[in-house]
Design a protein around this nucleic acid. Sequence first.
DNA 1: GCACTCTTAAATGTCAGACCATTAAATGTC
DNA 2: GACATTTAATGGTCTGACATTTAAGAGTGC
Lengths: 243, 243
Amino acid sequence: MKIDPQSPKDLSAQIAGAIRDAIVEGRLIVDERLPSEAEMADQFSVSRATVREALKRLAAQSLIRTQRGATGGAFVNRLSFEEAYGQQVTTSTLLLSMNAVSFDVACEARYAMERACAPLSAARRSADHLAAMRAEIHRQRQPDLSDEAFCASDVAFHRALVDGAGNPVLSYQLAGAVEAMQPLMNMITFTARSRERIVTLHTQIADGLEARDADCVDRHLVTLETYTRRLARNVMEARAARG
Amino acid sequence: MKIDPQSPKDLSAQIAGAIRDAIVEGRLIVDERLPSEAEMADQFSVSRATVREALKRLAAQSLIRTQRGATGGAFVNRLSFEEAYGQQVTTSTLLLSMNAVSFDVACEARYAMERACAPLSAARRSADHLAAMRAEIHRQRQPDLSDEAFCASDVAFHRALVDGAGNPVLSYQLAGAVEAMQPLMNMITFTARSRERIVTLHTQIADGLEARDADCVDRHLVTLETYTRRLARNVMEARAARG
DNA sequence: GCACTCTTAAATGTCAGACCATTAAATGTC
DNA sequence: GACATTTAATGGTCTGACATTTAAGAGTGC
C-alpha cells in the first residue's frame, strides 16, 4: 500500500482510502489486526497523528474498531446489519432534509419499496411479526398517545411488515426509507392526520397478512399512500394560502 | 454543546457526535461555517489534535467539508445524491461480503426492489433512458466484450431502468442493491452465464418499457430473477460436488 | 502446584507547541 | 485603476511527551 505525498488530497484521506480498498478487496479480512499506529506511521512515512486521523475516518464508517491495552490495536470490523442500518438511516435522513426532496417523491419511493415487500411478507410472516403489528395497532388506538409516540408506533408497524418478508437485506434497505420519512411525516401529523383512518388501514393490512392475502395488503398500502399524499398536498396548499 | 471528560468513550467520538447531532437537528445549517479548530479546542477544553480527529470522523461521512486558507474552515456539507449513493454502495457491498449473505437472499431483495420500479419506469421513462438501455444491450451483444465489461454494462442497464422511474430517492436506494450485487454476480458470471439468454431478456424488458407495458417488464424481470437464481444454485451444487 | 498480587510492556488516547502550505484580503506601488 | 506584495488566518503535518488501559509475565505466599 502506497501513498503519494505530492497528491493534492490530504495524507490522512489517502491512507484511509488505501486501507479501505484493502478491506473491500479482501486483502484485509474480518477481525484481522492492523499494524500499530507507530508501525503504520513508519510504513507510510508520516507522523502518528496523521495515521490516527486516517483511522478515525475508517472508524466513523464502522470499517475498523480499536482496542486499547497490551493486545490492543485496530481491527477490521465485521459490519453488522445493525450498524449498516444506523448509517443508512442517518444518511437518508440528511439526504432528504438537505435537498428539499418533496414529500411526494419521498413518499412514492417509500411505498414503492414497501409494496415490494408485501407479497414476501404475506407468504412468510411469522406469528411474531403479526403479533407485533397487532400490538402497535392497539397502541395507536389509545387516545392519550402523544403525536410523537403515534409516529414512532407507525414506524414500528411498518418495520414489522418489512421484517415479515424474512429478508435481512430488504429490511436493511427499507429501514432508511421508512425511518427517514418520519421527520417529513411529522410536518403533517400534528395538523390534519386522522388516526382513526390510519388505524383502520393498518388493521386491514394486518388482516391481509394474517390471511396471507398479498393483494389485499397491496390494495390497502396503495390506499394508505394515496391518503397520505393527499393529506400532505392539502396541508401544503393551506399553508400556501395562509402565507 | 457539551462533552463529558469522564465518559468511557473517546473525546473525539463525543465531539463528533455532538456536532453530528447539531447538524441532524438543524442547529447547524448547510454551508454554515464551524468555528476554527483552535476555537473548538478552547470550547471543548481539548487539544487541537482531538478536535481534528473528530472533524475527520465527520468528513468521512460527508457531513462536513474543509477548506484551507484565510477564509477556510470546516463547513456543513450538503449531502448530495452522488455522495450518498457512493456511501450506500460501499456499505452494502461490505455488508454482503462480510456477513455471508446468500446469493438467494441478496438476489431476492434486489429484484423485489427493481420490480417496484418497473411500473413507474414504464410510465415515465424518457427517450434518453430507453436509448441508454438499448446502447447497453448493443454493447452486451459484442462477442469480444470481457466478462468484467459485460457485468458493468449489465449494471448500467439496470441502473437506467431504475432511473427511468424519475424518482431520485428510489434511484439512490436501489443503487446500493444493484451495485453491491455485482461482486456476488461475478462468482457465477465466469462459468455458466448465457449472454444470449440475458441479452434476450434485456431486449424484452426494453421493449416493454418502450411500449409502456408494466406487466411485460415485470414478467421478464421475474424470468431474469428465476434464471439468475437457478444458475447460482447450479454453480453452488457443482462446486459442492467437486469439492 | 495453585491462587493471588505486583510489575512490566505495548498499545491507544491526549496534550502542547511548532512549523508548513494555502488562501484571500489588505497594503503598497506604478 | 491595475497589478504586485505583504500579511494574517486557517487547515495540514510533525515531534515528543505523558496518561490510560490492558494482558501477559514475574514474583510471592500457602
